[in-house]
Design a protein around this nucleic acid. Sequence first.
DNA 1: ATTAATTTTTAGATTCGCCTAAATTTAAAT
DNA 2: ATTTAAATTTAGGCGAATCTAAAAATTAAT
Lengths: 219, 219
Amino acid sequence: MQYSAAEENYIKAIYRLQDHAAMVTTNALADALQTKPPSVTDMLKKLKAKKLLNYEPYKGVKLSAEGKKVALAVVRKHRLWESFLVSKLQFGWDEVHEVAEELEHITSKKLIDKLDAFLGFPRFDPHGDPIPDSQGRITIQPQVRLTELPLHQSAEISAVGSQSPALLELLKAKGLQLGTRLDVRKIFSFDRSLDIRIKQQASVNISFELASVLFVKTC
Amino acid sequence: MQYSAAEENYIKAIYRLQDHAAMVTTNALADALQTKPPSVTDMLKKLKAKKLLNYEPYKGVKLSAEGKKVALAVVRKHRLWESFLVSKLQFGWDEVHEVAEELEHITSKKLIDKLDAFLGFPRFDPHGDPIPDSQGRITIQPQVRLTELPLHQSAEISAVGSQSPALLELLKAKGLQLGTRLDVRKIFSFDRSLDIRIKQQASVNISFELASVLFVKTC
DNA sequence: ATTAATTTTTAGATTCGCCTAAATTTAAAT
DNA sequence: ATTTAAATTTAGGCGAATCTAAAAATTAAT
Ligand SMILES: [Mn+2]
Ligand SMILES: [Mn+2]
Ligand SMILES: [Mn+2]
Ligand SMILES: [Mn+2]
């Protein structure tokens, strides 16, 4: 079965939202997709007819098994294209989302699998998010927010919770990026800012706002 | 200005057709685009309103200067993606057209210019067709059909006039590909078949049908 | 010069994805 | 338990891109 760009966008949005809420609501979807609630209702009816999701009026929506498969395929395409743009075309990771949002709808499985091979089967995209494999299997790496990391526990930055140029600018200024080894030296109670030590270097102070969009895995 | 995939497909088709006929007709377009004449008329009105072409009912259509610019941009995208698919993802040149037909509508000039650089600014696509540069300039190489090449004139295969797997299969079997050096040893009047000599090797016989879809440039 | 055939356009509908405004249902507040 | 507010759906409509059937214009043939 083949789906339109609009359908794929809805499926992907539902997939993302249903991790943070048992039922995905019409308004949440309208918000995520920058559209209006009546448009969402229309599409939900259509996707229900195609058995991609379970939808009961007024109750909310959840993806079916088939729906999840479709979602993972779209996520795979999105993240592989993002990886391509960053690792081969020298885009910054703050510039790739919009373009990948279009590229993810190209309908050739062969293309995606060959792209995957060309990139060396990357397991994570430029934002640290896992890339589903050809069969839709996803590796979830255990990670916590940097704000939750115990003092003196060695860890490395594994994902970013925002893709804004502003975050990238700040990370560069602080000498941080995906994969950076660090540990937390001190937390100041006044503003909840953190002193962190990068590798073997001198310590750097970062705000609570910054720390809370950084995810780390212990090592 | 930004154009829909449908609009870009029409513009590109008109661009291709207007080389072989002073006026592009409604039926020719319907044929090329696998659609029906009334759909073409509708679109022509729309594109005329956008000043991309000159269209007078019943008379036919020609691209405006602006229309040509758009056409060249789409052709550039198409051929760069084809080059990418063949040179980086190991597609055969008989497999890339359909996918490129989709990829050419991704709307990021930055993406295309970076792709161009990544590929090393190729001047010709996998079928030997010239790739317009970032400003829409195109290099036309003087070439003739192999059927027109004088006897014993040294030349190399510069383009193919078909993208079918059947042609690729035959070329492989005859040991021919883009860039192959050859000259014509003899033309048999009975079936117009040609004996050609590849580089310094033994001669090979190819049919008139094959020779007429091969373009060569003398060297 | 008529007539016939072909090409092209117009008329009217359809599907998709979206919208606004109004009605309905559900949840919250008094 | 009512009333009020919020969320959601229904009703009706619109633009893009397509279609079929019918009308009109052009071209070719007698
Ligand atoms: Mn998208
Ligand atoms: Mn990402
Ligand atoms: Mn196309
Ligand atoms: Mn080509």
